[in-house]
Design a protein around this nucleic acid. Structure first.
Length: 366
DNA sequence: GTATGCTTTCGGC
DNA sequence: TTACGGCCGAAAGCATAC
């Protein structure tokens, strides 16, 4: 007999800021802001995460640090630069604990993971609620962090359940309630529905997931193609068979940095990207990857970002190949755009573990 | 025509 | 009135392959 799946999404609350609270519990009642400082001026940078007290002042992820300071003027707010190594250590600990509760764990980011607990629950959703409370309590006791859990018959429902109540939340959606739960939500809550698709669906008279679920499949297929059309139809009907599987290594490695001064000068730009390349290369070499695609990333003075990339004929693991291609990409880019540049980045992707492909003599004789 | 792959942009955290 | 990170995968748009 095949059990219906029981899937959880565990998502740690305001993770970076909560880690700072953990390190220094005395600041818990204050607004906390964790930000990335570019080093250009005292307060140049952006907010990465803030606790809920800071959020009540409109201080949220992505806003400039100077704005956060202005909003929090007169409060006893505390500001921290991101300490990624520390957050990673905490993440490793909590993920390790979570993994003991599941048959499989799929980490989606530093603070988020899916758990397949079907066999632990024997398919029983009543048990799952108690089980999730136990997990939350265990993490609270062992590590001291709060998290939000969504439970559903698959990843899709678990994710949306999780989003529905934060922080320190626990939302359970039974299989028989799943379609009812999704019905009133706007279609862009579904993975795969971005701005363009949202607009297209809107024009077709589809705004809610319920409307999408009732829409004729054949017409969906006619508009979006077989794969996407079927996917949308299933998702809207709370059907999702994506397994919870151990997520492999990252698909790309990149490094971005803010320049001391805005510039359009190739030599100055390459000076910076060479530094970034060294760091990227070090990580790629440590992981023993070969890579096939090299990209540059540019943020102009107007804060508009652009990227350019090349894909090589053959994968390589050569640092000089990165530098050569970054140079060529920048030469081209600078000829196209006359704006001064504020930030630059280097990215490699298209990884393989093997040595770079080369014609093997043995194949001649095989 | 549909699927696949590559490039660029978008958006979440 | 200005001022503003870094990283990732998803989405979108196109070209080419099947």
């Amino acid at each position: 007999m095949v059990l219906g799946r029981v899937v959880m999404l565990a998502d740690f609350d305001y993770f970076f800021a909560q880690c700072e609270e953990l390190r220094n519990p005395l600041i818990k009642d204050k607004p906390i802001v964790v930000g990335v400082y570019s080093g250009r001026t005292e307060d140049s940078g952006a907010v990465s995460t803030s606790n809920y007290i800071a959020r009540s002042y409109g201080v949220k992820s992505g806003i400039p640090i100077f704005l956060a300071k202005r909003n929090l003027e007169g409060t006893d707010a505390v500001f921290f630069p991101v300490d990624h190594d520390y957050y990673q250590q905490i993440s490793d600990r909590v993920m390790q604990i979570l993994s003991t509760y599941a048959s499989s764990l799929e980490q989606v980011s530093i603070d988020e993971a899916y758990l397949d607990v079907t066999s632990q629950m024997e398919g029983n959703f009543e048990k799952a609620y108690i089980y999730a409370q136990k997990i939350k309590q265990d993490i609270k006791t062992q590590v001291g962090l709060s998290l939000t859990v969504g439970i559903g018959p698959n990843k899709l429902v678990a994710k949306i359940a999780c989003d529905s109540q934060k922080p320190d939340g626990l939302t359970l959606v039974k299989p028989e309630d799943a379609t009812k739960f999704l019905a009133p939500l706007p279609v862009d809550r579904l993975l795969g529905v971005g701005k363009k698709t949202f607009t297209r669906m809107e024009q077709m008279g589809i705004k809610t997931i319920e409307e999408l679920s009732k829409f004729d499949v054949q017409r969906l297929i006619a508009v979006f193609g077989k794969t996407l059309g079927l996917y949308f139809h299933n998702a809207a009907n709370a059907i999702d068979n994506e397994p919870v599987i151990f997520a492999g290594e990252a698909e790309s490695i990149s490094k971005i940095g803010t320049l001391k001064q805005d510039t359009h000068d190739l030599t100055l730009l390459l000076q910076k990207t060479d530094e970034l390349t060294e760091i990227v290369y070090k990580e790629v070499a440590e992981k023993n990857y070969s890579f096939k695609t090299i990209s540059i990333y540019v943020v102009n003075v107007d804060l508009v970002s652009k990227s350019r990339s090349v894909t090589l004929e053959q994968s390589t693991r050569d640092k000089e190949v990165i530098k050569r291609n970054v140079r060529v990409l920048f030469e081209k880019y600078l000829a196209e755009s006359s704006l001064d540049i504020r930030r630059v980045g280097v990215k490699v992707s298209g990884f393989s573990k093997e040595q770079p492909q080369q014609k093997q003599l043995s194949s001649f004789f095989g």
